[in-house]
């Protein structure tokens, strides 16, 4: 299993000289399996360049897994090359809503005054799938999606394939559920997807002192992210969803802060950087 980060910025794209090393594109991850299956996790602005790469490599079928429909996880979809290729198929998976279907919610972002082209007029084939409530399979991969603490219907994903596992929880505020680190894992938000996972990509948008003024915004401090990683037994942690005000230098301080917290993960935590490739060996 190969994980590549195409965008790891939170909230809004932040291009510019201050964010060259971590990158300014919003959330998008590519997971490639040995059997050729391609998963794309979230459709932030990072998906635009990924789409170009997929086209160049002749990939005609992808599974696009959306965690939720906040703009920083959806805004790149309108510029995703496979959507405009009549030979491409996108299986698009996303959380259910109590009121409106996934397809209708996504169509809104393809309508005036936001965008000139209706989603139904794009030549690529899109199959919409509201997420199953239990684990399911796609090819050789086993997947599970679980609702997690974040405003609006939001899920995290776990993908197991090629003898390893990855959990993707880019927007998450488990601190709202109290002292989760002292709870059994079945009482931890997203516990079933992150438990004993080989690689956890998790929200760490803030320093602890920043979090105090942003309680309830749906994101974690680095302290909370590391406590979460320990509580679920993650082996390796990549800190994700960087605050738009954080420069590369600030992110280096955040990474140092994470490492100083004395986590039980096997490898030191790292902050996500655009272009980063993580190879997960079979265990």
């Amino acid at each position: 299993m190969r994980v590549r980060i195409w965008g790891c910025r939170g909230s809004v794209p932040t291009p510019g000289p201050q964010t060259v090393r971590c990158g300014g594109n919003t959330s998008c991850i590519e997971i490639s399996l040995d059997d050729g299956t391609v998963f794309v996790l979230d459709a932030g602005t990072g998906i635009r360049e990924l789409g170009n790469q997929l086209a160049e490599n002749g990939v005609k079928h992808v599974h696009l897994m959306l965690t939720h429909l906040h703009l920083d996880h959806l805004e790149g979809l309108r510029f995703f090359a496979p959507l405009f290729d009549p030979e491409s198929t996108i299986d698009l998976w996303g959380p259910r809503s109590p009121v409106v279907t996934l397809k209708e919610r996504i169509r809104r972002s393809f309508s005036p005054p936001l965008f000139p082209i209706d989603l139904m007029d794009t030549p690529g084939r899109v199959n919409f799938h509201e997420l199953p409530k239990t684990q399911w399979r796609i090819g050789e991969a086993r997947l599970i999606a679980s609702l997690i603490v974040h405003p609006g219907p939001t899920v995290g994903y776990r993908i197991e394939a090629d003898g390893s596992s990855v959990a993707y929880i880019p927007d998450h505020e488990p601190a709202l559920t109290g002292d989760f680190a002292r709870r059994s894992r079945d009482w931890i938000s997203g516990g079933s997807i992150a438990e004993d996972v080989d690689l956890l990509l998790h929200d760490a948008q803030y320093f602890e002192e920043e979090y105090d003024g942003r309680l309830g915004w749906g994101h974690s401090s680095v302290d909370s992210a590391m406590a979460y990683a320990d509580a679920v037994g993650a082996r390796r942690v990549v800190l994700f969803h960087h605050d738009p005000t954080h420069s590369d230098e600030t992110m280096e301080r955040l990474e140092a802060e994470a490492r100083s917290l004395g986590s039980n993960t096997h490898d030191p935590p790292i902050v996500a950087r655009e272009g980063m490739v993580l190879e997960l060996p079979s265990r």
Partner: peptide
Amino acid sequence: MATARSKHLVLILARELASN
């Protein structure tokens, strides 16, 4: 899949509300 089944998020949030 080797993971345990988590309580539904709604129950987790309800517990936190009840705790307070």
